[in-house]
Amino acid sequence: MTRDTALVAALAIGAAVAAQAPLNSQLGRSVGGLPATTIALGVSFLTLLILTTIAGQLGGFSDIRKPPLYALIGGGLVGALYVGSIVWTVRALGVTGLSVVTLAGQFAAALAIDHFGWLGVERSPITLAKVAGVALVAAGTYLIVAD
């Protein structure tokens, strides 16, 4: 995938993710927060299982013992915590507030992960420009949430 294609894809999925919190929150008001999270992640699981089957990649499950335990459960655990939290946090922060606070947290953590090369990523040292970018995001976060 080219960088330009990746940028367009990331922008499109980012736009779609903006609808995830209010959809899950609405579901949560009807069935309760944890059941809503379970339903949402169940739909995600079934969708991915169907896509994996269509792609002919079910055999990849036989390699489940290869990754370290933190990699095996970490992403799914974080996904469940995120989807579970948005059911409630969107009500207090609104979609824009939730989105910007989530992104600010991601940027701060990503800066450290990249700098130290944690979790198997290639090291990308912190630079003044990156710190300035995260500081601007923090300032923007404050302006959006303080309103």
Results as ranks from 00 to 15, higher is better:
45 F>K: 12
46 L>D: 12
11 L>N: 09
118 W>V: 01
8 V>Y: 08
100 V>Q: 15
86 I>W: 00
147 D>E: 15
93 L>I: 03
133 G>Q: 02
106 Q>T: 04
75 G>L: 06
99 S>H: 13
2 T>F: 11
9 A>H: 14
88 W>K: 15
130 K>W: 14
14 G>Y: 04
44 S>T: 13
104 A>K: 04
41 L>K: 02
30 S>C: 14
64 I>N: 03
47 T>K: 07
5 T>P: 12
89 T>I: 03
38 T>H: 09
81 L>Q: 03
20 Q>S: 01
143 L>C: 07
70 Y>V: 07
61 F>Q: 06
142 Y>V: 14
131 V>H: 09
141 T>N: 10
13 I>V: 07
54 I>P: 03
85 S>L: 04
16 A>R: 09
78 V>T: 06
71 A>D: 13
19 A>T: 10
24 N>D: 11
60 G>H: 13
32 G>Y: 05
14 G>C: 00
61 F>D: 05
142 Y>A: 14
26 Q>N: 15
100 V>K: 06
83 V>T: 03
112 A>H: 10
39 I>N: 06
37 T>A: 06
144 I>N: 09
1 M>Y: 09
131 V>T: 12
88 W>Q: 15
43 V>D: 00
140 G>S: 07
145 V>G: 02
17 V>F: 09
130 K>R: 15
124 S>R: 12
117 G>P: 03
53 T>M: 14
16 A>E: 13
11 L>T: 14
86 I>M: 01
2 T>W: 14
20 Q>R: 00
91 R>Q: 14
108 A>C: 08
146 A>F: 11
34 L>T: 05
81 L>I: 08
18 A>V: 03
135 A>D: 13
135 A>H: 09
83 V>A: 01
109 A>H: 05
78 V>G: 01
13 I>R: 06
72 L>P: 00
49 L>M: 13
132 A>W: 11
121 V>F: 08
144 I>D: 03
55 A>W: 06
40 A>L: 01
137 V>I: 13
54 I>T: 10
100 V>E: 14
73 I>R: 00
76 G>I: 00
145 V>D: 01
92 A>D: 15
121 V>G: 00
65 R>Y: 05
25 S>C: 05
146 A>E: 13
1 M>E: 14
41 L>D: 02
56 G>V: 03
10 A>L: 04
39 I>T: 07
27 L>M: 06
78 V>Q: 02
19 A>P: 01
118 W>K: 03
3 R>D: 15
113 I>F: 02
